[in-house]
Amino acid sequence: MTDGTYNYAYLDEQTKRMIRRAILKAVAVPGYQVPFGGREMPLPYGWGTGGIQVTAAIIGRDDTLKVIDQGADDTTNAVSIRRFFAKVAEVATTTRTEEATVIQTRHRVPETPLSEGQILVFQVPIPEPLRMLEPRETETRTLHALSEYGVMQVSLYESIARHGRISKGYNYPVMVNGRYIMSPSPIPKFDNPKLDRSPALQLYGAGREKRIYAVPPYTPVKSLDFDDHPFEIETWEQCCELCGSKESFLDEMIVDDDGKRLFVCSDTDYCERRRTLPEAAE
């Protein structure tokens, strides 16, 4: 109990147990979307209700929490969620990737490689990768159940036919453990390779659609492609204006009224560490 009003980590124990069961099932069947009885949270859908419920169900007093939004620790949403858990779960918080035991994220995977024992919690707006191709839920479930994924490949074919290449830059579909096609949430495809055989546990929570899915540590995650149009990540001519990184995912910013553009790391922790610790930069 924190202030006598809310249960530890906001959710009641029954709910947390129910979510944990869903998580266990999701871990047991990598990439499979497990329905769960999502609760109303003190923030609107689209702000990370799914991620928060997953975090609330797994967090304990010994944990250290990091929250990022588009790679940044300092946006309103990230700060609010961090403070929320500091208050209701009495956990330490950090912005340092390697110090965190639980990292809740919206739309990015940290640049700093994750390690065993860490848990990455994704906030997912639309969990169903086939939704844009097949609107009927009963049918998408059948397609997953039967591994009938021709239609997903059709969408990639169509992309090449229209744009000369697979134009999808975000939410790029992956095949998990050779069985289920999964939406990696709207991370840039740049981050897809980091999901493959990651030592960290990946949990995905979709609040509005009430689905949880997971990728256990060291699970193969393959980005879909064609033999003659292999999966590729984006690259930049520029390097980060602040830390000089050539390897990280860059955000393009317009910094004055004349339209001057600047490229900076999207991962603020990574960028800051490179600037403050010279050995981190090389």
Binding site: G150, Q153, V154, Y157, E158, A161, D227
Partner: peptide, 18 residues
């Protein structure tokens, strides 16, 4: 497209060469 319509069955059984 027509190409995707015709290609679907091929892709459904594993064709992966665009």
């Amino acid at each position: 497209s027509a190409g995707a319509n015709i290609g679907e069955r091929l892709m459904a059984v594993g064709a992966r060469h665009y």
